[in-house]
Amino acid sequence: MVILKTEAVVLKAWNLGETSRILSVYSRDHGKVKLVAKGGRTLKSKFRGCLEPLSRITIEYYDKRTRDLQLLGRSDLLDPHMKLIGDMRGTVLGLAALELIYRAVAGEERSVEIYDLLSETLSALNGAGGGFAEGIFWRFETRFISLMGYQPTWDNCLSCGSSLGKEGGFFQASSGGLLCASCGVSRGGLVVAGGTLDILYWLQGAPVFEAAKLEPTDGEKAEIRKMFDLYFKVHIEHIQGLESLKFLYGMESTNRQGIFPASSNTEIH
C-alpha cells in the first residue's frame, strides 16, 4: 500500500451508510479513481466541502492495488467553482462534462491533458457569466474526442478529399467525418450547414473563454448537438446520450415561464 497525493476533480459522489461518502474523481496523476471518505458527511468531518461534484480538490489516499475503492486520507478544496451555484445552465453543462469523462474513461489511465481540459472548462463555465456557456462545453467535447483518439475530420471530404466550404456536407458518425455535397448525395448522412462546420473548426483552436462569445443560430445549435450525440453513440461504448444533456434539453423544450433563459443566475431573497 502506498500513499498517493495529487489534484483531482470530483466527478460523482454517492452516500455510503449513515455518514460516509464514495467519490469518483478524475485525478491529474492517476486518472479516474474511486475513493471512500469515511465519516465525510458529518459536521466535524475533515473532508467537508470537498465531496461535491464540480469541485477541484487535492487528495491524499491510501492506494492498494488489490481493491477498487481506495481510502481517502486527506483532502483540501482548491476551487469549488462557486459562481456555478445558482447558475442552472452552467451547473448542468459542468455536470455534463463530468458525466462524459465518468462514462467514457474506463480505468486509471493517466492523462494530464484530459485533466487540464476538464479543469479549464469548469473554470470557464464558472466565469462565463451571461455568455454562451454551451460554446465552452462544445469546445470541451471537440477536444475530448481528440484526446480520446477519435478526432473526426471537419474540413475535408472523407471520400474525395475536397475542401468543405460554405455549402456544408453530410456528417457520417461511423466513418469519422464528413462527405461533400456531391459525394454525400448518394451515401447520405446528417446534413450539416457550412456555418456549423465553421464553428466546429474554429472551436478546435479557440481559447476557452472565447468559446462563450459564440452566437450560433438555432439551426447550427441543433446540428452541433446532434453531431456530438451521434458521434459518442457510435465511437464510445456505454454512451447512449448523456443524462445531463437530456435534462438540459428537457428544460429548454419545456421553457415554461422563462425557466431556462440563456443567462440563468437566479436571485433568491
Binding site: L54, I259, S264, T266, I268
Partner: peptide, 29 residues
C-alpha cells in the same frame, strides 16, 4: 427552500425559484 447545500440541492433551489418567481411569492433560501 430548505434543500441540502449540495450541487443538486442548489440546482433544485434555483429551479424552484425560477418556477415560483412569476407567481408573486417571496422565495427564500
Amino acid at each position: 427552500i430548505a434543500t441540502n447545500p449540495t450541487v443538486e440541492g442548489e440546482l433544485t433551489a434555483s429551479y424552484l425559484a425560477r418556477l415560483l418567481k412569476p407567481m408573486a411569492v417571496r422565495v427564500t433560501r
